[in-house]
Structures are given as structure tokens and as C-alpha cells.
């Protein structure tokens, strides 16, 4: 499975204003089993790109292929983990994980499979609980179990730990890394945390804003699990790169504000 992004651009037409170009000419090839992070300042279009890959938004121009199949609509072979857990509050934990399996297998098999993945994210004892009874971190675990149960070929994660506290975040990062090592799925992981990107990824795509483009493609060849000391040099390089980007965004926003 190879993900190919071919000249994808996205612009939003605003009435009475010049169209906002969110993504411009994104070209990218992601080979099977790679863990790739999309890193960039807010407003660089990284979430939009993920949403286009999921088939939830249409690009203004350009094409996306999973192997030779063009992506235009959402489908279960592209699993998405959203920033909010997006669990259905009217279903309990087990039923939530069974949701994508409904039409694919007999009930008994669905239950077994859902239980298996819930145990994988350490929630085997919470099957009967409802989402509102779980903490944010536990909810996000359920949504990871749900997406894994679907067995997608491509896993898209949109700042999945963005809303969690630091400790929970670190624990979940370790779990995601372990799950990825076990399943070897292709992962595209959107984040604005440099440390998070380096901890998890084989490859980091740094995005710049206005218009959103990929400004640098780093491959990370550090031994896993990654140590702080090993990560420091790369962290600094990316930090410097992003500083100039963020400064650029700030300057533009301020000049926009003074023009209004």
C-alpha cells in the first residue's frame, strides 16, 4: 500500500475577499508501514490535508491515490482518530468499538474482536461503561481501539492527544508506538508538538503556512524507544525552522488586523 498525493491544493472562497489558499501543490509519497508526522504552526492546513486524505473534504485540485485507487470519499480502509474522541454517547464502550464492524461479521465475532482491541488499549474492564463516565484519555483510547478494530490500511490521526494532559499524552504516545510496531500500519499523524513528532515518527513533514506547503522533509533514524538526548539536535533544527514560519504568520496576521 502506497499513499500518493499528487498536486493537491485547497482554497476556500470567501465572499467579497480574495480566496484563502490553505494548501498549495502538495506532492507526497508515503510508502507502506511508515509512521509520518505532519508538523506545523496552527493555520498551516495540516488538519485540512488530513481531512482531504480521509475523504471528508474535497481538494480544489489534485488527486490522491491509495495504491492505484483514487480517494474521493470516506471509507473504512482509511481510519481516522479525531482530536475529540468522537465516541457515540448513546452506545457503551463495547458497542462503540463494534460500530464499524456491524455489517462485516456475525455478532459473536464482532464482540470478540472489539474486546481484543479494547484489551490492547487497557480498557478490557470498561466494556459496559458509557463515554461520559470515562476520562478524556480513556475516551481517546476507545477511539483508537475502534479505529484498529476496523483494520484500515491507512491510519490518520488528527492531533489525537491535543486535548489531553501531559502525563496521559506521554502514556498514550508509548501505547501508540507499541501498537504501531505490532501492526505496522501506515500512519499519518498531525501534531503541533515537535517532541511528539520526533518520539513517534519515521519521517517528519514540516509545513509552512499561507499558503500551506511542505517546507522540509526529515527522516528520523533514531533507535526506538527514543531518548531525549538523541532527539535534542533534531528538535532544535525543527524549532529554528518553525520559528521563522511562526514569525511570518504573526507578521501577516498583524498586518491583516491593522488593515481591517
Amino acid at each position: 500500500m502506497t499513499l500518493t498525493i499528487d498536486g493537491v491544493s485547497k482554497q476556500f472562497n470567501q465572499t467579497g475577499k480574495t480566496p484563502a489558499i490553505v494548501l498549495k501543490d502538495i506532492d507526497l509519497t508515503i510508502p507502506n508501514g511508515q509512521f509520518v508526522s505532519l508538523l506545523g504552526p496552527s493555520g498551516c492546513g495540516k488538519s485540512t490535508l488530513l481531512s482531504i486524505l480521509a475523504g471528508l473534504q474535497k481538494p480544489t485540485s489534485g488527486k490522491i491515490f491509495l495504491d492505484d485507487v483514487r480517494i474521493t470519499t470516506p471509507s473504512p480502509d482509511k481510519g481516522v482518530v479525531f482530536q475529540e474522541a468522537a465516541l457515540f454517547p448513546w452506545l457503551n464502550v463495547l458497542e462503540n468499538v463494534m460500530f464499524p464492524l456491524r455489517k462485516k461479521m456475525p455478532k459473536k465475532q464482532q464482540t470478540e474482536r472489539a474486546k481484543h482491541f479494547l484489551q490492547m488499549v487497557q480498557l478490557g474492564k470498561f466494556l459496559e461503561h458509557y463515554p461520559h463516565e470515562l476520562s478524556g484519555g480513556m475516551q481517546q483510547r476507545v477511539s483508537i481501539a475502534r479505529v484498529l478494530a476496523m483494520d484500515p490500511t491507512l491510519l490518520l490521526m488528527d492531533e489525537p492527544f491535543g486535548a489531553l494532559d501531559e502525563q496521559t499524552r506521554i502514556i498514550l504516545q508509548q501505547e501508540v508506538e507499541k501498537i504501531w510496531l505490532d501492526t505496522k500500519k501506515t500512519v499519518l499523524f498531525v501534531t503541533h508538538s515537535i517532541r511528539e513528532a520526533i518520539t513517534l515518527s519515521d519521517r517528519i513533514l514540516v509545513m509552512g503556512a499561507r499558503p500551506g506547503t511542505i517546507i522540509k522533509d526529515f527522516s528520523v533514524d533514531l533507535a526506538r524507544p527514543r531518548k531525549k538526548a538523541d532527539m535534542a539536535p533534531l528538535e532544535e533544527t525543527i524549532m529554528d525552522l518553525l520559528k521563522t514560519e511562526i514569525a511570518k504568520v504573526m507578521r501577516e496576521e498583524l498586518s491583516h488586523a491593522s488593515n481591517d
Partner: peptide, 21 residues
């Protein structure tokens, strides 16, 4: 909208999406 997006990415659409979500 997040429920709809989640449902769509799990292969639900049309009448099924309406009834189940």
C-alpha cells in the same frame, strides 16, 4: 459534525448514517 464525520469514516452513509447516527 464530528459524529457525522466519524460515522462516514467508518463506512456509514445515507439511510444508515441517518438511522444509526
Amino acid at each position: 459534525p464530528i459524529f457525522l464525520d466519524a460515522g462516514k469514516t467508518m463506512g456509514s452513509k445515507g439511510v444508515d448514517l441517518f438511522i444509526k447516527i
